[in-house]
Amino acid sequence: MKLTPDDDTIFSIGDLAINATIFNTWLVMALLTGVSALITRNLRSDVPPNRWRTMLEVIVIGIQDQIQSITQRVDPRLLYFTGTLFLFIVTSNLLLVIPGFHPPTASLSTTAALALSVLVAVPIFGIGSRGLGGYLRTYIEPSAIMLPFNVIGEVSRGLSLAIRLYGNIMSGAVIAAILLGVAPFFFPVVMDMLGLLTGLIQAYIFAILATVYISAASAPPGPNTPRSKQEQT
């Protein structure tokens, strides 16, 4: 039994082996982009929105409201980044119910890539908001003694994000596969339903944590900043 879809090579381009993780990621990307482009291709302000456009508006506005409730401000770049994180993870996790489809998020490489993206996005958003000096100053707060601990904290955030997502998705898939072998008629269905729930929750948690990290780095320092709250999380 293969624990990660990285080991399944779908096809090769020269020396590059395209595994199931990358291929399924493309499928998810194609699905998200195709559906979005299909619904938003003919938007007009004077025409009442149809049910598909309303669905997309509910999703986008819901994500934006969640981000705004955390950051207390509207930042379109944060919406693009964390919204895409959430949509990608949740779509991948929900596609778990399709037989034979290995969600990309069940790969540690994918979760590591997403965690690395968050890890890199945090200083980028922080520097973009506070400037380079202002962002680096956050590592020596409240005193310079805290510099190594802050650096370790930043790295551990990425690791925890990656392991958390990977562990939940991979474990659900593995448990479902094991139960499919032991009791193929009842338990796999229950586990798949549980997998949908945990996948949705994990996508939400991953996106929320990424939002908290980025907003903590980009928000002005103060007693009630999201960084303080994030430290308590």
Binding site: T25, L32, T33, F88, P104, T110, A113, S117
Partner: peptide, 18 residues
């Protein structure tokens, strides 16, 4: 590859969704 894919997806969703 996944990092690249994710960044491409960010751009695509920004272009076609957000």
């Amino acid at each position: 590859a996944q990092i690249v894919n994710f960044l491409v997806l960010v751009w695509l969703l920004k272009r076609f969704l957000y």
